[in-house]
Simulated assay, not measured.
Amino acid sequence: MTTETLKTDDGQLTIWFDGPVWDGHSKVATVGKCKFASAGAGTRLLQDAATLAHSEGATALIGPMEGDTWHAYRLISDRGERAAFLMEPSSADHDEAAFKAAGFEVVSSYFSASAPLSELPGPKPDDTEVFTVEAWDGTDPDKLFTQVYELSCAAFADNPFYKHIDLADFLAMYRPVVPLLKQDLILFARDRTGALVGFLFGIPNYAEGPAPKSVILKTYASSQKGAGHWLSYQFYVNAKALGFDTVIHALMHDDNLSAVRSGLNGADVFRRYALMGRNL
């Protein structure tokens, strides 16, 4: 992956010249790892990044994004008052203004919401013989994440801003979190042949300290109708049994907002995020 870092006395950023497909552009670059002392400093660096990306043949620039959506991306557009949670994107309050002044506009919006586990999981889904749901057995984390990788690539391939990454790069991202994992928060749905048709990845919110009371529903995907409902139901049951009192639905696309509001009793959207883009 070809990158270049721009630094000044009042900021820095990194450009990835081989970003994901976006809006029909032939070549997209991304900009991430942004650290700006002020909105003005950020604007100047972003304008320099746009000039450099264009000189390398890019026709669009998006960010903040560290090369692809597997890595850190998005800025905080509405911070709210809740403390940051584990693995949440971070940005300065002036970052959005810097991007906008440099000619960027919002191209995708996201949110995080929380709900009390006392009001979940709701009615139990209908029994099914099509698949079974099981928790991770706690062994062979590379095998675990290889299965997650394979289903993720298939499930997310048609998502906006998708870009394929190699298994080795995927494992390198997730191995550091293995000591933080709890088996009952990592769930699989398998069909009658044993093939994986869905997964859910949850993790305690250790940003609260060593004994957190909130749990993060980080990622889930399924290729079988009904698997997502069963996975989330079992996740809530297991999280309550482990003593958590709040669930955080992390970094969901705005298109899912109505589903969250109707499906979660007492859900509270506490943070919003944006991905910015511009033509070159």
Score class of each variant (00 low, 15 high):
residue 218 K to I: 05
residue 200 L to T: 02
residue 142 D to Y: 06
residue 212 P to M: 04
residue 131 F to T: 04
residue 163 K to W: 03
residue 135 A to S: 14
residue 216 I to P: 13
residue 177 V to W: 05
residue 210 P to W: 13
residue 125 P to I: 01
residue 224 Q to S: 10
residue 225 K to S: 11
residue 151 L to W: 00
residue 219 T to E: 06
residue 129 E to M: 09
residue 142 D to S: 12
residue 126 D to K: 14
residue 188 F to E: 01
residue 216 I to M: 09
residue 184 D to H: 12
residue 201 F to H: 14
residue 222 S to A: 15
residue 152 S to A: 14
residue 174 Y to P: 09
residue 150 E to M: 10
residue 192 R to V: 06
residue 198 G to M: 01
residue 154 A to I: 12
residue 132 T to I: 05
residue 155 A to P: 11
residue 189 A to R: 00
residue 201 F to I: 08
residue 154 A to Y: 11
residue 193 T to G: 11
residue 223 S to I: 11
residue 148 V to H: 00
residue 179 P to S: 13
residue 216 I to T: 09
residue 199 F to I: 03
residue 152 S to F: 03
residue 190 R to K: 15
residue 214 S to C: 08
residue 126 D to Q: 13
residue 126 D to A: 15
residue 206 Y to W: 02
residue 149 Y to R: 02
residue 172 A to K: 15
residue 177 V to G: 08
residue 125 P to D: 01
residue 171 L to W: 00
residue 213 K to S: 13
residue 132 T to W: 01
residue 184 D to T: 08
residue 219 T to I: 11
residue 129 E to T: 15
residue 217 L to N: 10
residue 192 R to N: 08
residue 179 P to A: 10
residue 158 D to N: 12
residue 169 D to N: 13
residue 191 D to E: 06
residue 226 G to H: 04
residue 162 Y to G: 03
residue 151 L to R: 00
residue 169 D to M: 11
residue 193 T to M: 05
residue 213 K to H: 12
residue 177 V to Q: 10
residue 180 L to K: 15
residue 172 A to V: 08
residue 149 Y to I: 01
residue 184 D to R: 07
residue 191 D to A: 07
residue 190 R to M: 02
residue 164 H to R: 13
residue 139 T to F: 10
residue 202 G to V: 08
residue 145 F to H: 00
residue 162 Y to D: 06
residue 178 V to S: 11
residue 194 G to I: 06
residue 212 P to C: 04
residue 224 Q to D: 04
residue 204 P to R: 08
